[in-house]
Amino acid sequence: MIGLSKITVRRLVNVSAVLTLVALGLMVAGLFWPSPLLLVLAMSLGQLFGTSSLALYLLAIALDLQGVGEDEALGGGDRPQS
C-alpha cells in the first residue's frame, strides 16, 4: 500500500482543484491565442491535467465514502472546528 491513510480527502480535492485550474488555463489560452504550439498544449497537456484532476476528485469521493480522512473532509479541512 502507498499509505492511503495519509492522503486526506481534502488534499486530494485541493490538488484536483489546482490541476483543473491549470488545465482550464491551458485550454482557454488555446482558444484566445490559437498558435500551433499552444493548441497542441491545450489539446494534450490541458486535457491530461483535466482528466487527472477529475480522476483525483473521483478517488477522493470514493475514499470519502469509505471513511478515509473522514474527520478532515467533513469537518471543514484544516480549520479547527468548534
Partner: peptide, 26 residues
C-alpha cells in the same frame, strides 16, 4: 467549505462537468 453533499455536487460541476464541456467545445 466542509465537503458536504452540496459542496461535492458543486465540485463535480467545477472539476468534472464544466471542464469536460470546455475540452469538448474547445
Amino acid at each position: 467549505p466542509p465537503l458536504g453533499r452540496l459542496t461535492k455536487v458543486l465540485l463535480l460541476f467545477g472539476l468534472g462537468v464544466m471542464p469536460i464541456g470546455v475540452a469538448l467545445t474547445g
